[in-house]
Amino acid sequence: MKKRWFICLIIGIIMITGGCLGYLQFGRDMDVYGSHAMTADNYHEERLTVVVNKLYVADQKACAEEIVKRCRENSFKSVRFSYDQSIPNALYVTVYASKRQAERGKQMFSFSYLPQDSEGTYNIIDDSEEFILEREE
């Protein structure tokens, strides 16, 4: 009887732990933690702090592409960009695992999304084929 109770307890602990870890990795959505815009003449630069709400990010390039996609679609949960005023010509993003990591300054990675040709006035929505995503070290 004690053996059966012990096995049930171990299985319960494994299920609870697995569920908690699953939630921490897959149950929460990324969001913007902070943003800063700079505009001068026809140039608009957006600097974002994004919290991915994950324990780890296996493919940082895919994560960065998803962030850019959400910026282009203006589909973050807590932030709406005012693209009717101006659309960013440059995007700089710092990515953190959680809000707590952002408060501590422990970033996962950062990247920029910039036009290949710095002479043009391209923006991230209308001219996405002109941009290069570059992970910064």
Score class of each variant (00 low, 15 high):
M1Q: 12
I7R: 08
I7S: 11
L9F: 15
L9G: 09
I11G: 08
I13C: 13
I16N: 03
I16D: 07
G18A: 10
G27Q: 06
G27S: 07
M30F: 04
M30T: 01
A37D: 13
T39Y: 12
D41W: 06
N42W: 04
H44C: 12
R47E: 15
T49G: 08
V51M: 07
V52F: 07
Y56V: 01
Y56C: 06
A58K: 13
C63G: 03
C63F: 01
C63K: 11
A64H: 10
A64K: 08
A64R: 08
I67H: 05
R70E: 09
R72L: 02
F76Q: 10
F76P: 03
V79D: 07
F81P: 01
D84P: 01
Q85I: 07
P88I: 00
N89K: 03
N89A: 01
A90E: 14
L91E: 08
Y92G: 01
T94L: 03
T94M: 09
V95S: 05
V95Y: 07
Y96K: 03
Y96H: 06
R100M: 11
Q101F: 02
A102M: 13
M108A: 12
M108Q: 11
F109V: 01
S112N: 13
Q116E: 14
D117I: 00
D117F: 03
S118Y: 10
S118H: 08
S118K: 09
T121Y: 15
Y122T: 00
I132E: 15
L133T: 02
